[in-house]
Design a protein around this nucleic acid. Structure first.
Lengths: 200, 200
DNA sequence: CATATGACGATGCGATCACATTGCTTTACC
DNA sequence: GGTAAAGCAATGTGATCGCATCGTCATATG
């Protein structure tokens, strides 16, 4: 797409979605309003409305955007091809990524938590979360199954159940880190220990 | 306190706080407003305002109320004296209580999740959460330490770290149950397996 | 060149919100 | 029995919200 109307459409939408994510990360989903988003993005409220005629679409776009950014960050760390890398390395990387260690990951986990809570009232978001996690858990289970067949992980474990428990542990700890219940390093140590426990 | 002004003060406040919890549980914290709360409680908006002059106090009261109800439910299941009961029984009961299994526990976990997200924007709530969890984790750690000294749990484990991981696992799984990512029975099985793993 | 359309900014509108104010009734206390 | 305070309902108020509408300008297209 070159110049003219619609040339920067996708980019503008992404910028606005990023503004929403920034607001959610430091003031929560309740602080998201058209004027607030416009101020955060440094544009007029009319422009926000132009790209997102209804607030619902604005929030959903931010949700999708957050997931994209998360996937991109994970891909950057593990490589594009999930089959190519060592399962154990991918497991520790991905699970470690769930524990906030800088402002970007902290913001992302805050957003994730906020949408989790939001899903109680918005079935559309809940449905997307289910799809997202089904995929995520399946990928983790695949990694575990691969190292089971390689003889590195006890074959008695149920790959999917184990994956579920690992991710749940990581996210539970992440929630603690976000509110200051525990430190990031403690949480990270716990997650890595849980992975190591698979390979005992 | 007998009759006259102030006689039912605490009870009225509790009723209103319960109404807030009910709204949070099925429509989220964003749906909480003075008129909404009044409608839920079947009283006039003025009465809500009378007992809670500012919305902040209303939300905080609901937060405290939720914690009280949770503690009461746990006490009812484990007995009043935490020293009297078998540590393993208490561990499984308390952790199992974190997994939603009926409308009451589901509502409670929804409320907990909502306040967790709310804490990002409200430092006062975050501070209360920290105190709450510090206490909670310490109690769990004590139970583990007691069964370590009894020789039922490997002494090599760090009681506090182990307690932290167990609760985080349970809450992470609970979040999945709430959005339908996984079933309650699966989550429960995972939690019980984690406890059983301590006693291996 | 004419016209339609995209891309906005500006303004207005109705709803809702938290909160303030007022006033009436009931009760405790001197 | 008079008075002060508590317990409420009713109403008002200013702010903010999402969203609709209108107008302007640039650009692609015929």
């Amino acid at each position: 797409m070159g110049r003219g109307p619609g040339a920067h459409h996708a980019q503008r939408r992404a910028e606005i979605a990023d503004a929403v994510l920034a607001i959610v990360a430091d003031r929560g989903l309740a602080a998201v309003s058209l004027t607030e988003v416009a101020a955060q993005a440094g544009i007029s409220p009319g422009r926000v409305q132009h790209y997102f005629p209804a607030k619902r679409q604005l929030v959903e776009a931010a949700f999708e955007r957050g997931n994209e950014l998360s996937s991109a960050r994970i891909r950057a760390k593990t490589g594009a091809d999930p089959q190519a890398a060592e399962p154990r390395l991918v497991l520790t990387t991905v699970l470690g990524e769930l524990i906030p260690y800088d402002t970007a990951t902290e913001a992302h986990m805050r957003v994730r938590q906020s949408f989790h809570a939001f899903a109680f009232a918005e079935e559309a978001i809940a449905a997307r979360l289910r799809v997202l996690y089904a995929d995520f858990h399946r990928q983790m289970a695949d990694l575990i199954a691969r190292d089971q067949q390689a003889g590195h992980i006890p074959a008695a474990l149920d790959p999917h159940a184990t994956a579920l428990a690992l991710v749940a542990l990581a996210e539970g700890l992440a929630a603690y880190v976000l509110t200051g219940v525990t430190t990031a390093s403690t949480a990270r140590r716990q997650v890595l220990a849980a992975v190591a426990d698979l390979y005992r």
